[in-house]
Every structure is written in C-alpha cells, then in structure tokens.
Design a protein around this nucleic acid. Sequence first.
DNA 1: ACGCTCAGTGTATGGTATACACAGTTGTCA
DNA 2: TGACAACTGTGTATACCATACACTGAGCGT
Lengths: 258, 258
Amino acid sequence: MADKSSAQRTFELLWGLRGQPTRGPKPSLSVEQIVQAAIEIADSEGLEAVSMRKVAERFGVTTMSLYRYVPSKNDLLELMLDAIAAPGPDLSQMPEHWRDALHWWARQNMEAFRRHPWLVQFPFSHPPFGPNNIRWMEAALRAMEGSGLTPDDMVWVLILLSGYVRSEAAQQLALVEGARVTGVEPEEWGRVYAEMLRKVVADGDHPALARIVEAGVFDAPVQGPDEDFEYGLTFLLDGIEAMINSRPPAGRKRSSRP
Amino acid sequence: MADKSSAQRTFELLWGLRGQPTRGPKPSLSVEQIVQAAIEIADSEGLEAVSMRKVAERFGVTTMSLYRYVPSKNDLLELMLDAIAAPGPDLSQMPEHWRDALHWWARQNMEAFRRHPWLVQFPFSHPPFGPNNIRWMEAALRAMEGSGLTPDDMVWVLILLSGYVRSEAAQQLALVEGARVTGVEPEEWGRVYAEMLRKVVADGDHPALARIVEAGVFDAPVQGPDEDFEYGLTFLLDGIEAMINSRPPAGRKRSSRP
DNA sequence: ACGCTCAGTGTATGGTATACACAGTTGTCA
DNA sequence: TGACAACTGTGTATACCATACACTGAGCGT
C-alpha cells in the first residue's frame, strides 16, 4: 500500500470483485493456494520468512508468476490476514449475554494469535477491510447489542479488547522469543531475565525494581498464560460492566458536529 | 538477535560495557552519533527506511564502517529503542499518589510514541533491556509503591499500561496511515472507511455493523486523540483502583512453586 | 622504530521486491 | 477455420538490503 489506488485495489481483491478472465491459458495456480502457502511459511518460519520466491518455490514456479495472481506482496499479506479469519465466528456458538459473548469473542481472537504467532508481527495499518475480519467485527458488535452501550462506546470497547488480546499475545510470544534468543527453555527465561535485572539493581539506583526482583516476580510465572489472559480479560469486562452500570442511559458525549 | 551470544552482546552494548580500544586510529564516528542519525531517519521516513547504507551516507562513510561501532543492524535498533528513552523519567516531577503517578507515567510514555511514531512498528521481542528503559520501568514500579498492590500485580499493571499505550498509539497512527494510503486528509479518513462499510453492510448480512455505521460512529471522531487516550486511561486506572479496594491485603495467589 | 591493533574501504554473496519484454497458450469472433 | 486479443508463465534487469572477508593505512605501546 503506497499510493491512492492501492487501497481500493486491495479492497476489491479481498472481496473477490476482480472479474476472472475467460481467454488465455488456464491459470495453474489460484489466489487461495498462494495465500495458503504463504500462511504455511509464516506459521512455520515467521512472517519475515515469507517472500515471493519462497512461495513460488512451493509451486515449482518462478517468482514473477505470482504477480499474475496478486498485485504485490503487500496485498498478499492483506489476503493472509483475512484468510486466517475465515470463515468468521460461528454465531450459533456465541453466548446470549453481552459479557459472556465478549469473553467468548476475545478467547476466539486469542486462539488466532496462538495458531498464527506471526499475527503479532503483522503491520496493521488500518481497521478491518476483508470479509472475514469484518464478520468478526460484526460478531463483537452484535455481542454488545443488549448491553446498553452507546454505538460510540461499542466501537471503543471493540478496539480496547482487540488491543488487549494483541498485547497479551505479544507478551506471551516475547517470552518464547526471549527464551529462544538466550538459548534457554521458555520456563527458564524468567530466571535469566531476573538474573540480568539483579546485576542492574546491584548499584542501588533502582530500589523499587530491586524489591520486585527480590520478591521473585520474574523468577517464576505467577500463572500460566491462559490464566493470565483470563485474569486481564475479567479485569476489563468488570470495568465495562461498571461503565454500563454507572451511567445508565448515556454514554460519552459526542463532540459537537451535527 | 539470532543466536545465544547475541543477547549478551546487545546487553553489554546497551550498558556500555564494551571497553574502548586505546591503540589504533581514532574513530571518526561514535555509537551515539550513529544511533542519533538512525533515529532521525526513522522519525522522518519510518523504521523500515533505516538501513545501514542510509545511516552511513549521513556521515559520508561506507556502509561497512558502521560495523566497527555496531555489531549488527538489530543491535542498532536496540540502541535506538533505549536512546529515545533517555534520559529516563524526571522523578522529581512524578506525583505522590500512585494513581496520579501512573497517569503521569502513561502520558509520558505516550509522548514517546508521538515523538517517534516508528515505535509502534518496533519489533519488541523482550522486556526492557537498556538502562533508560529500565529507568522507566523503575519509575512505574516506584509509582505503585504505596498502592497496596502485590509485587506480582505491580508488574501485571505495568504490562497492562504499556500495552494500552502502545495500542492507543498504534490506533492513532493507523488513522494517519489509513488516510495517507487512501490519499485523503486524516479527518476525512473516517468518512472514507464509513463509505466502504456502507457498501459492505448493504447486503443486510451485517445488521449490528449497519446500525453502528448508520449511527455515524465512523464518520466523525468522538473526540480528539488526547481525550480518547485519557478516557481509556481513566477506565484502566478506575479498574486498578477497584482491584486494590476489593481485596485489601491480598493480591493474586501465586501458583505453587516454593 | 617495530609491530600490533584498529578504522575505514572495496568487493562479494545471497537475499529482497518488482518492472518489463517476451514466448507460448487459448477462448472468441470474423 | 483462421486471426487476434487476452492471458499465463519465464527470463532478465534494476535497485535495494545485511553482512562476511580481505585489505590498506593510521597510530599507540613497547
């Protein structure tokens, strides 16, 4: 995405609005295949390992041939992002009450990050564009329909929760990555970091940090990642509930503008 | 950062533990200069525009000469991350009460993202390593010292707030970026996105989203970015306060482990 | 003054995206 | 049926990227 037209092009690509040709040789590949291959590479080797060459190699085809299917690598990334959101949430599984529904939604969301760790690396540069991601958006909004939240606050909550899930995922992944980089088991990484901090606080200039380190916070995880995630999620949902209860009918005031 | 030794190397580089040589020609550059130049490039052209070549060009020097100062581009990035955190928070400015202090801390944090938008792009892969970032960490922990939070929860709150600030910054930047990509003024971008969604919801498959779009949520921002940031921050601090009040002495239980 | 250490250069390798010209295939229309 | 236009995939070229390695020459410690 670099120029004005590319956003529109990407949008059309995501919604399958690009008419397929009739004349000419039959394509040997398909956009879906290519996107799937790219996702597999990202899953196993990370997002930065996804290159047009590597994808093309999977099909025994030259790099340039991919450009017959996908206008640019950036568009491929956008397609990947929407593909892993397919087919969208199963609304029949979504609980009735807004709180349970949001809880369910956030957990499903987190699952995507677990399945595709490269998501935390993904350079999000705009709100949901593709059909599948928009279905997820729809689900979250539908979850909040009986909650008493204003439309403005619904969107705000959606963004808050999305952000939380991503942060939590990033943090969990940083743990794994930190361990990998130091050549240590993930459970040991905390100890390694604690050891570094112990050296740092030895000079006495970081008394608060020293107390934390001495309390052993970094040496062992408080809980597993799942419990951590749930803990924070409950915290946020409590806040949202309090928000709803404290101001029965009114939400935030919209700033002027008719 | 790819192998075991690199984490240690980076750590030493950050803390200036690499002894300077005495013999040989005088260096014409310094690590500080190089890092500063890289930051300037990132500030004006984005993080991905930072290349060893571009940095070297600023000094009229070959690309490879930089490697006399910095072991790898990755280390340069780490140095940049710590450099923009310099000189650390001014603790004399930090309010007394934990809530005000955390508020102050988060706002300062947000300022860093505003000054250096590439921060949201930064591939964080571990907790704070460098002296300046650790000073910020110390400040946040010190802020919470009289709050009644357990050490575990202090760290948890720190991570929660950091995540929130980053999310908010990312969202604000996505707005600017989305506008740039569609070739439109930032204030208009909401309208452009709303227009896209209007096309999407026309099929009737997204009733909840349709209602939100019709409510005009995307057409005009509810508030400016500052108010939005404060709104969320207050929400989180309220939650933390509630957390403290609801369980006076005890925090989360640590999971077994002696 | 010798020699070692180090700064900066030049070159090379292997990677990236993608622009462009081309060859060969195939559906459609005259 | 034949011609053509549209289309697929290839090959080549450009312009980047990080970084390994061998080298020249500078300057301090002995």
